[in-house]
């Protein structure tokens, strides 16, 4: 998985050693990336997000989907089949 090769700093700076691209994410983005790297499913991550940030499960899922869409656009994540 492409996400595994990324170098991710605690401050949310991400470097892709294969493409040389770098990105920044906020605390929530960092939280999601960490969970994705632990092979958690989007459903599980949405549940954890709603608990961690005290938002409704629907809102957490919507925000997560937005973020995953961005990751997909940058070629960093693919929806598991």
């Amino acid at each position: 998985m492409k996400l595994r090769r990324l170098a991710i700093s605690e401050e949310g700076f991400i470097f892709d050693p294969e493409t040389g691209n770098s990105y920044t994410v906020n605390e929530t983005g960092l939280f999601i990336l960490e969970k994705l790297r632990q092979d958690l499913s989007p459903e599980e991550i949405a549940r954890l997000l709603s608990q961690e940030y005290e938002v409704s499960p629907e809102e957490a899922r919507r925000d997560l989907e937005d973020f995953l869409e961005v990751l997909t656009r940058y070629g960093l994540w693919k929806e598991p089949r």
């Binding site: 050693p17 294969e18 493409t19 040389g20 691209n21 770098s22």
Partner: peptide, 19 residues
């Protein structure tokens, strides 16, 4: 990877990659 290039296409900043 070239990150910045000049108007002549010459590298100004770059980063090592492992592709």
């Amino acid at each position: 990877k070239k990150l910045w290039i000049t108007s002549l296409g010459k590298i100004w900043t770059g980063v090592t990659v492992k592709h």
